[in-house]
């Protein structure tokens, strides 16, 4: 179903993106505050939209790919806001804003034709817990990829001794970007682990077995191992900086590829959503 609240949310995201991008291009900070407020307003509108949808569906509104995409965009917007406000990472605003705008628009355009009925088997208290945890994990990984991309761009500039952003432009240091990347990965990993565990419990209560090697389940496990290896390399060998950032981006690309691919190619219990 459509709600009145979704288009204004997308409009706010778009405004925020334009503001953040303007600041990045000009090297200034003039639009950071208004853009942050716009991003917050967008997240607020979408929260109402999700609430209305959820009440209508009687559960968390993730019954199909479009709705899942909308929900996922919202989580990224929220997590991005936390980074921008709490950790002064306005620098990621341009990428985060564009991502949620595009996600929002794609979801909106495709959603008009969607009729959603949640299968009886999936109506459970575990649905919101499992899905939210999984999506939150992915949102963290997505933001980690954004932060890593920023790190790589910035690092290559410092290495090449090219035009350095003056500190006034509010560019975080390499050390900070690296640390935030690590924290996002750690949190994302925790969420993904919890999502897999809750999924298993839910599967057991519905179908009587914890694990059924559904394509999505298998891929989640692969992704889980990849992130585990990424964190392990940092904690034991001390891989950080450029190498960690590059690996974060590679693993996230694999994650997106596998999940979109799996959703579209292999039908399974998880078909209908991409998470």
């Amino acid at each position: 179903m459509d709600t009145l609240w979704y288009p204004p949310a997308i409009a706010c995201y778009a405004v925020a993106s334009v503001g953040f991008i303007t600041d990045r291009l000009s090297g200034g900070r003039r639009w950071t505050r208004p853009s942050t407020i716009a991003l917050g307003a967008g997240a607020g509108f979408q929260a109402v939209d999700l609430l209305v949808r959820g009440m209508h569906a009687g559960n968390i509104p993730v019954a199909n790919f479009e709705e899942s995409l909308a929900f996922f965009s919202w989580l990224i917007a929220l997590a991005g806001l936390v980074l921008i406000v709490r950790f002064r990472m306005a620098v990621i605003g341009a990428l985060v804003g564009s991502a949620v705008t595009i996600g929002g628009v794609v979801a909106y355009v495709t959603m008009r034709h969607a009729r959603l009925v949640l299968p009886e088997a999936l109506r459970s208290v575990w649905l919101p817990i499992h899905v939210t945890l999984a999506f939150l994990g992915y949102a963290m990984f997505a933001l980690a990829a954004v932060v890593s991309l920023t790190y790589l761009l910035y690092e290559s500039r410092l290495k090449a001794k090219r035009a350095l952003a003056p500190p006034e432009a509010g560019m975080p240091s390499l050390e900070k970007l690296d640390r935030i990347n690590y924290r996002l990965l750690a949190w994302g990993f925790l969420m993904l682990s919890a999502a897999i565990i809750t999924g298993a419990i839910w599967a057991d209560s519905t179908w009587g077995h914890f694990w059924s090697w559904d394509p999505k389940e298998s891929w989640s496990l692969v992704i889980w191992f990849m992130y585990a290896a990424l964190l392990e390399s940092r904690l034991t060998v001390g891989w950080r900086g450029r190498r960690a950032a590059a690996l974060t981006i590679v693993v996230f690309t694999l994650l997106v590829g596998s999940f979109v691919g799996v959703s579209l190619v292999f039908p399974g219990k998880h078909s209908g959503s991409f998470g």
């Binding site: 350095l164 952003a165 560019m171 390499l174 050390e175």
Partner: peptide, 10 residues
């Protein structure tokens, strides 16, 4: 000093 501030957070 400025460069140090761009590499290190503190």
């Amino acid at each position: 000093v400025g460069l140090a501030g761009q590499i290190f957070d503190t």
